[in-house]
């Protein structure tokens, strides 16, 4: 069973989001990395670029699949995880830690519609059928 930490929030498209003050950190869930398999390549948004909620802003690739990553909020990219360019494996090894993708500062008035860990686990379970 893949882990779904309680302290994080989730999107329906398998991103996780962590809130630290007004900054959101985004990554892909343990379930998502398991489904994709060993990742070999990552494309991340440009630092300082502006994202809209639901915009495709990153890509992760394994040898057999590629998945688009959607931004959970509208905001400005303030940091990306450059270590992934050299070592995309970090996402497989530590999806909620060293495998984070990017950090974004939401614009005012934009609060993401996200799931809690319980809701996300339910969604994953229902997709399996």
């Amino acid at each position: 069973m893949n882990s779904v930490p309680k302290k994080l929030q989730y999107s329906k498209t398998h991103e996780w989001v962590r809130k630290d003050d007004d900054i959101l950190t985004v990554g892909i869930t343990d379930h998502a990395q398991t489904m994709l398999g060993d990742l070999v390549y990552v494309e991340l948004p440009e630092p300082e670029s502006s994202l809209e909620s639901g915009q495709e802003c990153a890509v992760v690739e394994s040898v057999k699949a590629a998945a688009d990553i959607y931004s959970p909020v509208s905001g400005e990219v303030i940091e990306i995880n450059e270590a992934l360019f050299e070592t995309p494996q970090l996402i497989n090894d530590d999806p909620y830690g060293k495998g984070w993708l990017f950090r974004v500062r939401p614009y005012e008035n934009d609060s993401p519609h996200l799931l809690n860990s319980e809701q996300y686990s339910k969604q994953v379970a229902s997709e399996a059928h």
Partner: peptide, 14 residues
């Protein structure tokens, strides 16, 4: 064959 994830049979419209 490598870097196949960019190709049509996986990425389709993208």
């Amino acid at each position: 064959l490598t870097m196949q994830a960019r190709e049509q049979h996986i990425r389709r419209a993208k």
